[in-house]
Design a protein around this nucleic acid. Structure first.
Lengths: 222, 222
DNA sequence: GCTTCGAGAATAATCGATTTTTTTATAAAA
DNA sequence: TTTTATAAAAAAATCGATTATTCTCGAAGC
């Protein structure tokens, strides 16, 4: 554990959950590492109870592993799991986007354009904090928002967090960002054209590309 | 809250989680009900900390709703959600079963036959406890076990628990059981024949039938 | 040398009590 | 009558301390 976020000031319970979740996704903890609860308590400056409740939630969510009487640890990474996650993202996000394209209304079109624009803007500026990451997450959220299935969205977000544990192992240099961002705009275009088939195909390709980036990072990392 | 399970004796932490999970799935709590923590504490005879940790996990899992400073409650039911869950089950379980049929080995075939047999046996005897339910869950678990995706299995089980909140609103009379159980055996047959296409089609039909049963219970119930 | 054992230290889990927040009940004001 | 204000009660969240379990490391036995 090192270099983890400062806690935002304010109420504690869900705050610590969100902070930890982000730090886990960002890779601020080493995969496989056992969490020292007292260290967390000290670092994030929270009490034991809220902290443990957050850890329990994160374990149920799949960002931590809880072992019987031996605390919490960060799940290990494996190529097999990355492939599993990417493949499922392909299936689920493809399905969701296809449905979104069929069902989304004009307000959706507007929010898509907005999200894509903001993302492109962030692309060009130097990234203070995780602005690009946040906007990227928001963009993908928007893509599938009107798919009509609350549970599908839930699973997709869960998979995104898992996927990002791999993708964010390495840097996200401008060139790769650029390439992915081009696809983001194409996705918007196809959505506006209401071409569900092509939209899905491109989504598949987009996830495939992301997978390759993440895999490279993973292999570098080990 | 009424008529909930007695706690099995033994260690507390994960025990209370499992007990609560089962009681939620069984419908021992009324949908929408706010949980009185002190009452739970007294009934299950556990301390506050393990109880709260279990509730937090269940909320992350989707069997409870946690509201800011006002505790936990049982999620409401809706026809829309039931349709959502059933539809996703169709997609995910179909996908998983198809893959399982392609990838399962002879040990899988054996365990399938075993699970189906045990389920049929339980069918004929009077159901003490939830023997049939347990075996039914186990059977479906076995069907998709060799699909090769840990995350897919995880989501499917989560959806099963959600689906069962609806399906178990009403009784499960012998006639319906019989009909569903016939399909279980057909599923096994197609799996042994390695007919992935037909297997998936039948799985779709099976889930559709279950959905109709669950929907009837839901409509009766409101 | 290698394994097994056990005492002490470290850590996890749990408890009981306190603090904070929400809900309820009652009464005053509009 | 309805709304607003407020005090008391209830409930949720959190804290500090205790208990139970696991881990560490050195010594004894094989």
């Amino acid at each position: 554990m090192d270099n983890v976020s400062e806690m935002p000031s304010g109420a504690s319970s869900s705050r610590i959950y969100e902070t930890l979740r982000k730090d886990l996704v960002r890779g601020r903890f080493v995969a496989g590492e056992k969490l020292a609860i007292n260290a967390l308590k000290a670092h994030y400056d929270v009490g034991l109870s809220p902290l443990r409740e957050a850890l329990n939630k994160l374990a149920a969510y799949g960002l931590l592993v809880q072992e019987n009487q031996r605390g919490f640890s960060v799940p290990r990474l494996s190529r097999e799991e990355l492939e599993d996650i990417a493949h499922l993202r392909l299936e689920l996000e493809g399905m969701a986007f296809e449905r979104a394209v069929e069902r989304g209304d004009d307000r959706w079109e507007a929010s898509l354009l907005a999200a894509a624009h903001r993302l492109k803007r962030a692309d060009k500026t130097v990234d203070k904090g995780d602005v690009w990451e946040q906007l990227h997450t928001q963009f993908h959220r928007t893509l599938v928002a009107p798919c009509g299935s609350v549970w599908l969205i839930r699973f997709i977000e869960q998979l995104h967090d898992q996927f990002d544990r791999y993708r964010r192992l390495g840097p996200n240099p401008p060139l790769i960002r650029q390439a992915l961002d081009d696809q983001h705009h194409e996705l918007v275009e196809l959505a506006l054209k209401r071409d569900a088939q092509a939209a899905r195909a491109l989504m598949d390709d987009h996830i495939q590309k992301s997978f390759e980036v993440a895999l490279a990072h993973y292999q570098q990392h080990t």
